[in-house]
Design a protein around this nucleic acid. Structure first.
Lengths: 326, 326
DNA sequence: TCAAAAGTGTTATCCTTACACCCATGT
DNA sequence: ACATGGGTGTAAGGATAACACTTTTGA
């Protein structure tokens, strides 16, 4: 038995905040002359079993090389190994190898977020426009997504129930954590651009001409990166509630409004200000510094810092999401 | 560049209940004549990139082959790739390859749990004797574990704080989910038998003679399987609280006492009966069947069934753990 | 009639939610 | 003065935890 042609790839979903918005680090591959620009992808690198002692070290190294900055918080997400799911193929000398990709979630503090050529901090809304409910239900759900999904569902009750539960139709509540399920549903229904691309690859056909690309379904990413991104966002949204992880995205000091804005940007829902304040203060995870933030109109806000000491003894404490409107 | 020698291994942590106790499926490797019996391990098999379309299908297949029964619920846990952490080496013709193991958590309904030669349902208490708090704090924590850890910590305040927080000393509350952190702490302190074994391997020395093996630190398992088991148990304990997953371990019908016993066996804490009943009934996840369970002394209990329909619409509902004595 | 286990009632307490309101600053 | 955003009070409702208690069976 010979060694099976397997290559381990590492992908990083790096989140940061810029101007109060949630951004993800993307890499744009070199554009072939005369061809349409290829879709962006996540920072991605092979794992070298000889040179690297652990996945995490390897990840930190190649992200630093590709994007010129250091990761802070890092956590393993999921290992993707499906065949035929637009899994990337790697060229390893003697033919193509199967790539198993280990996805990682990483967070970068606000200050680190600088730009490099071919590396960009992309707004999450470009890839998941239906995930931002801060200003209420996005109109594109009822106008574009729901009709398209319902056409696909036909008379299948199971499908219709799934659509309603995931996209909060017919009075179902919005669950901001189920990012992956929503993306998978769109993919399954053939509405994500990647779905058509994968089918074309599976059929060994030439890449399909860009089908009429409806912006409501979000921009595609290279190979299965949008799926990895959806996994990361869902995981982060859930984790915010039971781990003091939002602070990894903040600077050294911050106002409670800025903290709330950060929570809202990641979770995609609007929060109730007075109750959010109290919930945060009750946790004991922050400490007022006594002095205020000079800028901004209105009354100046007090600055706070994250009490890392307190978090160490009670790491199972996150921030609650006291939502506005049901 | 040649294909790096990588092999993907799949490991399954399969939990089930037998006689009300939490058990894990283990495999005993063939005993070499004259040698001491090798430690048990988890069901483990290589992933064949040619033959298998997805990890999960591969896992189901080889577990069925090794243990002769079908898995029910399956979920990916974590991918372990550290070098030097007693990572198994696989023989792939031309020398040893680096094994990356993808760990899975699986649950089997009570009825499926039958025995096969070389396959056993091992009590969790054998591997983690300090994790069972159903009858209050296990004596071995204060008698053996805490003194040994404190000797290791010396005057390091950080280490002592970590010990107290993880093992609920000095009034710290017991957090049943942090199974992995506790195991890692024991490993780091050199108290888990695996730690000595790994160091011996790293030094290319002959396997150390079995050091005085203190039962309080639990029985070792093959390679890094006890770490994978700890990951699985911690994940399951957490997930019980927000997903209706305990029902995957129950039969078709069950009494509320049996359900409570199941929750207690997995989470390792004692629950308050009247409050547990009410909490379960409030979720709407179970339905009384009107008739009772014939056996047992005392008043016969009503039988219930899991309402899978209800779980489909609200999958983010678990059962709360109304604990006895904090 | 008693032991054993099932199951119910009731209260104090805490957390969440919602609404109303006051405070400090720049223009 | 007033707009703007920061920040506090408080009361209703629901969930949780703790206690005492009744019910139904078998021996």
């Amino acid at each position: 038995m010979t060694a099976p042609p397997i290559v381990i790839g590492l992908s990083a979903v790096v989140f940061a905040l810029r101007e109060g918005e949630a951004r993800v680090l993307t890499v744009r591959p070199p554009r072939p002359p005369g061809a349409p620009p290829p879709p962006e992808g996540l920072p991605f690198g092979p794992f070298d079993p000889e040179g690297h002692r652990t996945f995490e070290l390897a990840l930190r190294e190649f992200v630093a090389r590709q994007t010129r900055f250091q990761l802070g918080y890092v956590e393993q997400l999921y290992t993707f190994g499906d065949k035929g799911r637009d899994a990337p193929l790697a060229d390893v000398g003697a033919g193509a190898a199967r790539v198993i990709s280990v996805g990682y979630l990483a967070l970068a503090p606000a200050a680190t977020a600088r730009e490099e050529p071919d590396v960009a901090w992309a707004d999450l809304g470009r890839f998941f426009p239906w995930e931002d409910w801060r200003a209420g239900r996005p109109a594109l759900i009822e106008e574009v997504i729901a009709p398209a999904l319902e056409a696909w569902a036909g008379r299948s009750g199971a499908r219709r129930d799934r659509i309603a539960a995931l996209f909060a139709l017919d009075g179902a509540p919005w669950n901001e954590e189920r990012v992956l399920d929503r993306y998978e549903l769109l993919y399954e229904a053939g509405l994500a651009p990647e779905a058509g691309r994968d089918r074309a690859l599976a059929a060994e056909a030439a890449p399909v001409a860009a089908t009429l690309r409806e912006p409501a379904f979000g921009e595609p990413m290279a190979s299965d990166h949008r799926r990895i991104l959806a996994t990361a966002l869902g995981r982060l949204r859930g984790k915010l509630k039971y781990r003091p992880i939002i602070f990894e995205l903040m600077g050294e000091t911050f106002t409670l409004s800025a903290l709330q804005k950060a929570m809202e940007a990641i979770s995609g829902v609007a929060l109730h200000k007075p109750n959010f304040r109290r919930a945060v203060e009750r946790t004991g995870l922050v400490e007022g510094l006594g002095h205020t933030d000079p800028s901004s109109p209105g009354r100046p806000a007090e600055l706070f810092r994250f009490r890392r000491e307190a978090a160490a003894t009670r790491p199972s404490l996150g921030l609650s999401l006291p939502r506005l409107r049901d």
